[in-house]
Amino acid sequence: MCLAIPGKIIEIDAHNAQQAMVDVVGVRRKVDLGLLAEESIRPGDWVLIHVGFAMSKISEAEAADQMRTLMILGESAAALEEVEGYGLENEYPPSEYPASKSRGLVS
């Protein structure tokens, strides 16, 4: 329902710390930092932009973490298959599968 995309802060207005220039692959636009009052935003930071306002500071660490999770999707699947090979799967219909067991399998 809301189009928002990542942009990189390239400059903060010297006269108004709530105004900054962002860059989206070579496209530049002024954005309002007023909704990120709690964060300290510096040039080089990435923010999520919606209707000309920065909505959120993007976390590089979380993005990297997500990438790692995505990369091992396949591998963890293989590991799961091994576990499933023990026939645990068939003991419970999917809807009744014990939560504790699933957590152990998934993470």
Partner: peptide, 12 residues
Amino acid sequence: RDAVRGACELLG
């Protein structure tokens, strides 16, 4: 080009 892509992403 990047600039076209960037503008298109920004403007939907």
